[in-house]
């Protein structure tokens, strides 16, 4: 289970960043007082437009960033106080983080297995499972730079879950993928759910969220404006679908900020 309590992240801007962003503000609030709970065995969606604060929230859960305020617990473990322990429980996939393309798929998998503290036997067993699942075996001796975008994404997922984490976080998992690879990714997420894992995905594609997520939270301009199950959200906003509900939320909360 994942628990986010009153999470706030404020970036201090350098003079260069202030100039680039054309602002006089020395701080940028990326996420403000966000809280939600992602239960075990469910897919939780973090939805919102680009720049809403989804990735910041996910990076903080994955221990890459430290919350400015608030707390995050992964299976009851504080992500700041016991970051190393949390890293062992979390698998994080994001488009910003890539595999080193100079190496073969096989080597990269083994490399991350070793970094995760796995022995050769464990790595080989996991490799067999995941490479078979994602049909990577045929390409395992090729350098990653020679693989297709879809195959790179499949390998990235395999590396992300190499240590069989309890919490799996996918940031925009189907972004830029062809329909076949996107299907393979969503099928894998459903498979993980069936195995009782806690899954958090972020997306700005409402149809993906509708199809996959058991629960969701909507973030607009760094603030959580809604959360719950799909039918509850649609009912509250008197919307026909999630996209319709989202636009209504954006008109309401997006305007406030302006």
């Amino acid at each position: 289970m994942l628990e986010v309590k009153d999470f706030t992240k404020i970036y201090k801007l350098s003079k260069k960043q202030m100039k680039e962003m054309r602002t006089d503000e020395h701080n940028k609030v990326a996420a403000s007082h966000i809280d939600f709970i992602a239960p075990k065995g469910e897919i939780f969606g973090l939805l919102g437009p680009n720049g809403a604060g989804k990735t910041t929230t996910l990076r903080s859960i994955a221990t890459l960033l430290t919350p400015t305020a608030g707390e995050i617990f992964v299976n009851g473990v504080n992500v700041v106080k016991e970051a190393d322990k949390v890293r062992g429980m979390v698998g994080f996939l994001t488009n910003d983080i890539k595999m080193d393309e100079n190496f073969t798929a096989d080597y990269i998998f083994e490399f991350f297995g070793k970094l995760r503290g796995m022995d050769k036997e464990q790595i080989d067993k996991r490799k067999q499972e995941l490479f078979s699942y994602f049909n990577i075996n045929e390409y395992k001796d090729k350098k990653i730079e020679e693989l297709s975008t879809g195959m790179k994404q499949k390998l990235a997922i395999a590396v992300c879950v190499i240590h069989d984490p309890e919490i799996v976080i996918f940031d925009e998992p189907t972004n830029g993928l062809d329909i076949i690879t996107a299907k393979a990714v969503t099928d894998y997420l459903l498979d993980l759910r069936a195995r009782g894992k806690t899954i958090i995905i972020s997306t700005h594609i409402m149809s993906v969220a509708e199809k996959l997520c058991d629960r969701m939270a909507i973030i607009i301009q760094g603030k959580k404006v809604e959360d719950g199950k799909l039918d509850e959200i649609l009912k509250r906003w008197e919307a026909s679908d999630l996209e319709d509900a989202f636009f209504k939320m954006y008109v309401t909360y997006g305007k406030e900020e302006k």
Partner: peptide
């Protein structure tokens, strides 16, 4: 180069100090 290409992040996600 690793920072620029985004490959450093994957290593930082592991439990290695």
């Amino acid at each position: 180069g690793e920072k620029e290409r985004g490959t450093m992040g994957a290593i930082l996600l592991t439990s290695v100090s």
